[in-house]
Nucleic acid binder design. Structure first.
Length: 285
DNA sequence: AATTATTTCAACCGCCAGGGG
DNA sequence: TCCCCTGGCGGTTGAAATAAT
């Protein structure tokens, strides 16, 4: 018996999402949280498969996403991480808060790859291209003995045999470049702030999944409505203006939002979140 | 202005891993 | 232990946007 498709192919819409669909999905997720994706389209009134909904949410609609091109520092970080992790985009994305694996993968394929090639660096091995050519030449003589030693899996990280103290990137760039990278990261305040959370569960995502005490998300019982009780939202999700990437909004837009001061953080009301998402969606069209 | 080539990136596809029955 | 389901991942595609002719 073959594997069941992720969704009933009949009557399932494909292709670009419409504003209406986005709205429905956002509404549903904000109301119910992320639960069983397979059930989402039905419950949200969408003619999409659950997988498509999950992808749309994680890659495009999630409120904690950063938009726009990667900064220099982020790009450098991606290159460095790629040298260590290879094409493990999700692992790389986990180190760049607000960025998705898809976004990083696309940016790698369209920008970074070309940049590295231009610089004479092999985007796969992160070795200088001429060195690569030489290595290939010599390896054709020297059998494949190095193959077994060259890469070792260590806790999900690929290291070359000469990699105990340095990465391929470091091999071809030098430790000065590393300090430059560090400098550039330190100079990029937003990135630095983000990186401080690097080994923490992502702020929004983690709490996004956590349904408030006493609520059940997926079994369809006793879900909170916004009107009933939103008090958990600031406490549990701790949505801050900057967690949402509100930097993109102008003062007027921000002033129209209903915010609450919570200690050193400005927390958004539910109305404000909906308003923001509306503005965000408008801005993306 | 029209046509063609190239680039970008959102979305899809197929596969895999992990969890539960 | 096996089977099924779900979520997640990485590779690929193709429509839209942009640049070049």
């Amino acid at each position: 018996m073959g594997r069941q498709p992720c969704c009933d192919k009949l009557g399932v819409k494909k292709g670009p999402w419409t504003a209406e669909e986005d709205k429905k999905l956002i509404n549903f997720i904000l109301t119910n949280g992320q639960c069983c994706w397979r059930a989402v389209p039905k419950l949200a009134g969408l003619r999409r498969c659950g997988k498509s909904c999950r992808l749309r949410w994680t890659n495009y609609l999630r409120p904690d996403l950063k938009r726009g091109l990667l900064s220099e520092a982020e790009e450098q970080l991606v290159i460095d991480l790629h040298a260590r992790l290879g094409n493990r985009w999700s692992k790389i994305a986990a180190r760049l808060p607000g960025r998705t694996d898809n976004e990083i993968k696309n940016h790698w394929n369209t920008h970074i790859k070309k940049k590295l090639l231009k610089m004479g660096i092999d985007p796969v091995t992160h070795e200088p291209l001429n060195k690569e050519a030489k290595a290939e030449e010599s390896s054709s003589h020297a059998d494949h003995s190095a193959d077994n030693q060259n890469t070792t899996e260590n806790d999900g990280i690929v290291n070359s045999s000469e990699d105990n103290s340095s990465t391929p990137t470091e091999n071809c760039s030098s430790t000065t470049d590393d300090s430059n990278l560090l400098d550039s990261i330190c100079n990029d305040e937003s990135l630095l702030t983000s990186l401080l959370w690097m080994d923490e569960p992502p702020l929004v995502d983690a709490s996004w999944n956590s349904v408030p005490a006493g609520e059940t998300a997926c079994n369809g019982t006793s879900l909170p409505s916004w009107e009933d009780d939103c008090a958990w939202l600031p406490d549990c999700q701790d949505f801050g203006i900057h967690d949402f990437g509100f930097d993109c909004l102008n003062d007027i837009e921000l002033n129209t939002m209903n915010t609450l001061e919570m200690g050193d953080k400005t927390v958004l009301s539910v109305d404000a979140i909906f308003l923001y998402l509306g503005i965000l969606l408008e801005g993306r069209r």
